[in-house]
Write a protein that binds this DNA or RNA. Sequence first.
DNA 1: CGGTTGATGAGACCAAGTCCCATCACTTGA
DNA 2: TCAAGTGATGGGACTTGGTCTCATCAACCG
Lengths: 179, 179
Amino acid sequence: MRAALDLFGEQGYENTSVAQIAERAGLTKSTYFRHFKDKREVLFGGQDELVGLIVAGIAGTPESAGALAAVEGALVAMAVTFTQDRWANGPRRLAVIESNDELRERDALKMAGFGRTIRDALRRRGVPELDADVAAELGILALRRGYARWLEAGGDFADVARRALEEVRIAAASLEGAE
Amino acid sequence: MRAALDLFGEQGYENTSVAQIAERAGLTKSTYFRHFKDKREVLFGGQDELVGLIVAGIAGTPESAGALAAVEGALVAMAVTFTQDRWANGPRRLAVIESNDELRERDALKMAGFGRTIRDALRRRGVPELDADVAAELGILALRRGYARWLEAGGDFADVARRALEEVRIAAASLEGAE
DNA sequence: CGGTTGATGAGACCAAGTCCCATCACTTGA
DNA sequence: TCAAGTGATGGGACTTGGTCTCATCAACCG
């Protein structure tokens, strides 16, 4: 992962071949594809862990709480992975992703995956389908906004995410109807 | 596009090569890639047209109207392409997309693209950043839900989409805060 | 009628991704 | 102590998506 990020930074994603990455890491192409299902994936590790945290975060909020409270639980639970040291490469990673369509695509899929995870977890605790959809969508929006702010400003991710979600909630509540 | 959809239905997406599609269409691989930027894209034509309709739909709603009213304008404007005859293959297309990760990925990117289009158009008319984000996200959710319902039940897409957006709006407004 | 333009065919070429088999280190059990 | 098993790696053949270049061919135009 380090080798890949370095090379992408030096030469750009498209001008870097998997063989090059493997070589710099002291491995071969074969081994690369044993660890990552494709070239893109090297930039998106750790998704399973996040999915697990989301599920646990939602399961960990009291049954009586509303959908958004559960979403907040999910975001807060994710904070354990978003620590300064583990994410020192966050900005570089983000820059590479935004430089390339294939990567943006993968990112969109990952985010949609988080959204579905949240939605399904909400529905499993009895939240009506529509509310689960809406809460999940707003949760993802808050996650994106919170993540961006956290990358710039730092601080405790849980706090940042909580604030982002509250912000989004207020904005959503105050939107007026169409007619 | 017809040849591709047929072959995907018969053999599955992954077991179909671009050469096969081209052959059935009476063309060559070269020509295929002149029309579609990659294998996936054959299932996602007409996005530019939709983006144009979104922008026009938003521009066409009165300045005084709120963000969600503008989003409604966008959805309604899209209805001109969602007609029964042009979308006779909608269900088959959807089934293929959902059968494959690469395609889901592309779909997620397209949806995110629509979201960004909505968001940017809203911000251009002075909607604050946060509200534009939220309205765009809810709009995409309504689009997805409305599209799914329209595929099953048919009817006028504009009506279906309008109802879906109103539904989403009400759900969003009624979500309670986290604490 | 000669020249231009636009779409296509044809094929070389590169890189992503799959598959299979050999190798090597490490563990385990008799 | 050794043989067998296990897991990670190397290596290379092979397929296919995707790019590029050049040739061909038809329509159109002055």
